[in-house]
């Protein structure tokens, strides 16, 4: 599904991403973890062709993301507020996004039913512009917009941010369900190690742009190793 080869990105002297080889298979739910500045968002931006790599390439379904735009039709992503057109109401935004993927209004309405509980009556029908909404509700709009066209590849940066506990559990559950039921590949980044370990079938640990750990759920020390890493880091910083 996704192949990353010799991908590097430097900001000045600082290495943001340096990955020799990484394959992410269809149907995997991958968690990207790492401390601040590890390169998670940069990696997402490189995968989405929003940032120029210094070297290397990313292919999605065999398509080099730099050379063709065809991968966009089957990819959904939400990274930050730059992915929202905040002077639209959520409905207008969803219809706009839906149209970009060739969805009729009725299809969008039907799809939104899937997110009814998640929206909790605070998104649709309020006639509020997105910019007038709380951070949590903006986050919900972003996540829904990324999933609207049922993408084969879903990329979410910090999806649990700003959400209340109930909504965090919703996100965790429907990402798992979405991945299982559609066979889609889902990649999330998160600082919430508990949820990441809980929901992801595979976890990638980044440190200063390098992939330092790649663990699958079936690995024996899956959880332990990740926990040990962050505890060790905290100890080092403390001392």
């Amino acid at each position: 599904m996704i192949e990353i080869r010799n991908l590097t990105k430097y900001f000045g002297e600082k290495c943001a991403v340096n990955i020799d080889s990484l394959d992410i298979n269809d149907g995997e739910l991958v968690g990207l973890v790492g401390n601040n500045g590890a390169g998670k968002t940069t990696l997402f931006r490189l995968m989405l062709d929003l940032l120029k790599a210094d070297s290397g390439d990313v292919t999605i379904d065999g398509i080099d993301v730099v050379k063709s735009e065809d991968w966009k039709q089957t990819t959904g992503a939400f990274v930050d507020s730059g992915f929202l057109i905040d002077y639209l109401t959520p409905e207008e935004f969803f219809y706009f996004i839906g149209k970009a993927y060739g969805m009729a209004k009725a299809d969008v309405d039907e799809r939104l039913l899937y997110f009814n509980d998640f929206m909790n009556g605070e998104i649709i029908g309020t006639k509020k512009l997105i910019r007038s909404m709380s951070m949590g509700n903006k986050q919900k709009v972003g996540i829904i917009s990324a999933m609207l066209h049922s993408p084969k590849l879903l990329i979410l940066d910090e999806p649990f941010n700003f959400l209340d506990p109930t909504s965090q559990i919703y996100v965790k559950d429907f990402l798992d369900e979405y991945c299982r039921s559609t066979g889609a590949t889902v990649i999330i980044s998160s600082h919430n190690l508990g949820y990441t370990i809980d929901v992801c079938t595979r976890v990638l640990l980044l440190e200063s742009g390098l992939l330092v750990c790649d663990k699958h759920k079936e690995d024996e020390d899956f959880e332990q190793q990740l926990n040990d890493y962050f505890i060790k880091k905290a100890d080092v910083q403390h001392t």
Binding site: L50, E69, D70, D80, G82, F83, A100, Y101
Partner: peptide, 13 residues
């Protein structure tokens, strides 16, 4: 520029 990423991740929009 306020929502450029939204436009860029969609084909030729």
């Amino acid at each position: 520029g306020n929502y450029i990423d939204c436009l860029m991740i969609r084909k030729v929009s």
